[in-house]
């Protein structure tokens, strides 16, 4: 379970996230809906540990992971992150991108897991290709496989389907939902698209000007 207690993050004089309190239960698939610039991405980055809160604290399974005085490194939080536009590493092949988060596994197991994820996300044939040799839709599949590879307890998705056509978005969203269900992880899915948020099927948090403005199912 992830808990945010009165978390704030200010850039200059602009509060990107303002005293947000939120509880995300285990295995929940939560959609965070809000317009561009509302602070959704900053909230995800705070949960991931990529930003340090100016006030408040974040706990994961009862352990404080983020506060102004104490930060657990992102790599020790058991999270996966799907970035906008994929953010694939251009100097690594598709398979290497996925393998990167599996360094703790023995090599045989690492190969097996990589192959499984590529099969599951339908990118096995792209294994040896570099990111600039694949399409936008394929890149999102790789990003999803990469995020799920280390079996994270929480998957954070930051508008992962931006700039894709409607059919592809629908297919990929289905893939994300099914994959997350299958993995047993909880998911925070950030979007500005009401339709996508509805499709997630879990709790819905409305976010505006850095604060939670409403919630529902």
């Amino acid at each position: 379970m992830i808990e945010l207690e009165s978390v704030s993050k200010i850039f200059g004089s602009h509060p990107a996230v303002n005293r947000v309190s939120l509880t995300i239960p285990d295995r929940a698939q939560l959609a965070l809906l809000g317009p561009s610039g509302s602070g959704k991405t900053t909230l995800l980055r705070l949960i991931a540990g990529l930003e340090t809160p100016d006030s408040g604290k974040i706990t994961m399974d009862g352990r404080i992971v983020s506060s102004p005085d104490c930060m657990v490194p992102p790599s020790e939080r058991s999270i996966g992150f799907v970035f906008q536009n994929g953010a694939l590493w251009p100097h690594m092949t598709v398979a290497d991108n996925i393998r990167f988060g599996l360094s703790d596994l023995p090599s045989g197991e690492m190969e097996q897991r990589t192959r499984l994820l590529m099969e599951r996300t339908g990118i096995l044939r792209l294994a040896a290709r570099y990111p600039d040799e694949i399409s936008g839709g394929e890149a999102r599949r790789v990003a999803l496989a990469r995020a799920l590879a280390p079996r994270p307890k929480t998957l954070l998705c930051d508008e992962p389907l931006t700039n894709l056509d409607r059919t592809l978005r629908k297919d990929l969203l289905r893939l994300i939902i099914d994959s997350v269900r299958e993995s047993g992880a909880c998911m925070v899915y950030v979007t500005h698209d009401e339709g996508e948020a509805d499709e997630i099927g879990g709790p819905l948090i409305r976010f505006e000007n850095g604060t939670v403005t409403g919630s529902g199912i």
Binding site: L50, P73, P74, S75, A87, W89, G101
Partner: peptide, 17 residues
Amino acid sequence: VDTRLTDAGRIVRSDLQ
């Protein structure tokens, strides 16, 4: 270096790696 790419790495590996 695009910081998004390093952020993506920080999620799964130590900062030194």
